[in-house]
């Protein structure tokens, strides 16, 4: 084998991002095995990882982890560049932008639960907009908005609680 002439030296940060992204990808794949009543209603367990990375290592790393997860997760599930991928991608981008603003809320009053709910709403909002503009050009897509919103609250609270608990009980790795 010819030795590579390009030497890529991963930094500590790179390794950390890779480790967290791997955890998020595992959650994404595991979650895909759960049967769900409606397309679009998903627990979004991988966002727990995003929330933890955001709280510990900041927004930039959270963006890396979330986007790596969307791309690699879709490759593993055979969804890459399929409509589902663009829905996940737009949802992830929207929730990252929202988190970028929401993370500056006073931590004394707003914990991971708030961030999780905000992210969940941004996720579902962006997906509905993309679906309306591109996949289903009819206002009928919005008919299930209340269901999606309820799911966003429920799973937002659950994911936020798990993230908060892990942040409290586990030391930074």
């Amino acid at each position: 084998m010819t030795p590579s002439t390009i030497e890529l030296v991963p930094t500590v940060e790179d390794r950390r991002i890779a480790r967290h992204a791997a955890a998020a990808i595992v959650l994404t794949v595991a979650e895909a095995a759960i049967p769900l009543p409606l397309p679009g209603v998903k627990p979004g367990l991988a966002n727990i990882v995003t929330l933890i990375v955001l709280a510990r290592w900041g927004w930039r790393e959270a963006v890396w982890v979330a986007l790596l997860r969307v791309v690699a997760g879709s490759l593993l599930l055979g969804q890459f560049l399929a409509p589902g991928f663009f829905l996940s991608f737009s949802g992830a981008v929207a929730s990252l932008v929202t988190l970028g603003f929401a993370m500056h809320l006073p931590r004394r009053w707003f914990g991971p639960v708030s961030l999780s709910i905000f992210a969940a709403f941004a996720h579902i909002g962006a997906q509905l907009v993309v679906a309306r503009l591109w996949l289903v050009p009819h206002d009928g897509v919005f008919y299930l908005t209340p269901v999606f919103a309820a799911a966003a609250v429920l799973f937002g609270v659950v994911n936020g609680l798990i993230a908060a608990r892990l942040l409290r009980d586990r030391p930074a790795a």
């Binding site: 639960v113 709910i117 709403f121 919103a149 608990r165």
Partner: peptide, 25 residues
């Protein structure tokens, strides 16, 4: 783990569900 502001956000989220259901359905 649920901070005071979190309760507000949860309440706002539930209210949003209610409004969405009332207008769309």
């Amino acid at each position: 783990l649920v901070k005071p502001g979190d309760w507000l956000v949860i309440a706002a989220g539930l209210a949003l569900c209610g409004v969405a259901a009332a207008t769309l359905w």
